[in-house]
Amino acid sequence: MRILLFTGKGGAGKTTTAAATALKAARTGKKTLVMSTDPAHSLGDVLGLTLGPEPVEVEANLFAQELDIYYSMRKHWGSLRRLMLDVFRWQGVDRKIAEELAAIPGMEEGSAFLWIEEYAREKRFDLIVIDSAPTGETLTLLSLPQVTQWWSSKLFPLPRMALKGMGKFMGPAAPMLAGFEELDALLEKMGRVQKLLADPEITSTRILVNPERMVIAEARRAYTYLQLYGYHVDAVIVNRILPEGEAKGFFAAYLESQARYITEIEESFAPLPVLRMPHLGEEVFGLALLEKVGLLLYGESTGDAFLSMERPLRIVEADGGYVLSLRLPFLEEGDVKVNRSGDTLTLHAGSRRRHLFLPRFLAFYTIRETLHHPPELRIFFEKRPG
């Protein structure tokens, strides 16, 4: 099974691009599902259909689904929810508040994991295209298995086997045990799906960006964190590019800044491929326009083809600190200078600059040394004194 995940700032065009990619792949004969994990669903609007919490057939080989958290709760974790309610009520929490607290942190994002696990286990689709929520929620989704593991160990500190052993002698404990079994199954499924999402031979992430300063900044942060979590990015898509030479006055200034930003995007994400999607001059609704988007983006190739297998950025733990490794092709040793300002790392190579946003935890670390042995640049971070 192949998985494609589209992420980016809200309004960057994730839904349209995801739907167009799914349509193009489906029309090559691959059984494809496009799934929206954004609570503010717009996938049905783009396809011109009313979608539900189960897959709906759009046309031959193409299915679409908008996740519904309440439907997913009933389907996947009814016993776990009852366990949560019992735990909070035993602790004296008011029932109404307990109902609210029983919603597991990240439950909305977690439902996507459980659906993907089901489809992978049943081998229902050749390709799953995920139209994700905006960047922050996507990163929550991808880090969810570790967070849930930590959360469950804090909420239920007693050993599982001891509780299950008690259940043999306590009839009323049966619902509690069912909840624990469901929690264990949930964590196991999330672990399996995370392995799928982190496998670069199965899953690729594509970052949507508009040629605007704030959108580019968020895309850089997303790229850094995706690399940090071990998720493969195979392309950046620049969306809604206005045609050159057709604007005057106000739009002429916009076109000048657009050209600068596109160059900045290509330099920032090199050597990843950067695909350009022109503005169509109208809102994209319906299969005919989605087909046009897919053709403009991918040409004659299928939308699910691997666009890059590069892993240009890695952050690993080493010697009590961290090492950031970055591939910089076509540069000679000594060509690169590194400056840091807050959470931004600026690489200077001749007249060109590249900005990297560092993970926030590196605020506690300083740069010990920088080594450049082409094509790899390695930056060593150590803890700040005191």
Rank of each mutant, 00 (worst) to 15 (best):
A288V: 06
E188G: 11
I128D: 07
V274M: 13
G294E: 10
R352H: 11
S132Q: 05
R314E: 06
R27E: 00
A19L: 10
T366C: 09
A217G: 13
F364W: 10
D335R: 08
A253W: 02
K248M: 06
R82I: 02
Y231A: 07
E267M: 11
E283I: 13
S42K: 14
G179D: 02
L139V: 11
P329T: 04
G171I: 01
E99P: 00
V238Y: 11
Y254H: 05
Q194T: 14
R384K: 15
L141M: 13
L183S: 02
Q149V: 01
L255T: 08
S257E: 13
F361H: 09
L33I: 12
S42D: 11
R74P: 08
V336E: 01
L242T: 07
G136R: 05
F125M: 05
P55I: 12
L371F: 00
L358R: 13
L127C: 07
F285P: 09
P200H: 01
R192D: 04
L186H: 10
G10P: 05
T140H: 06
L280N: 03
G245K: 12
V323R: 14
A103W: 15
K96Y: 13
G52T: 13
E201M: 11
D45F: 07
S42I: 08
F285H: 15
I207M: 12
L62S: 12
E267V: 11
L4E: 04
E54Y: 03
G29T: 05
L326W: 05
A173W: 11
F381N: 12
L51T: 11
D38S: 06
L345A: 02
I69M: 10
L295Q: 14
V338Q: 04
L142A: 08
A247Y: 14
D184M: 02
F306E: 00
A185R: 15
G78E: 15
L5P: 03
I367M: 08
R354G: 07
P271A: 04
A102M: 07
S143Y: 02
V274R: 14
T302E: 12
A349I: 02
A222C: 15
K123C: 02
H76E: 15
T15C: 05
L345M: 00
K248W: 00
G106S: 04
M277H: 15
L362D: 08
A349P: 00
P278I: 14
K164G: 04
E59C: 08
R160P: 00
P145N: 02
R89D: 06
L163S: 03
G179P: 03
F169T: 09
L345C: 06
A288H: 07
D45M: 01
R276Q: 13
D304I: 00
S308T: 00
W151M: 04
K383Y: 01
L226A: 05
P329E: 02
L313S: 03
S143D: 15
V58I: 12
E310Q: 14
T32Y: 05
E317M: 08
I104P: 01
E332S: 12
E291N: 07
A305E: 08
T37K: 06
V236C: 08
K154S: 01
F250Y: 06
I241A: 05
I237M: 03
G334I: 12
Y119L: 11
N210T: 11
V34N: 08
V209K: 09
F63R: 12
Y365C: 05
A318L: 15
R95M: 03
Q149W: 01
D126R: 05
V274A: 09
F380A: 07
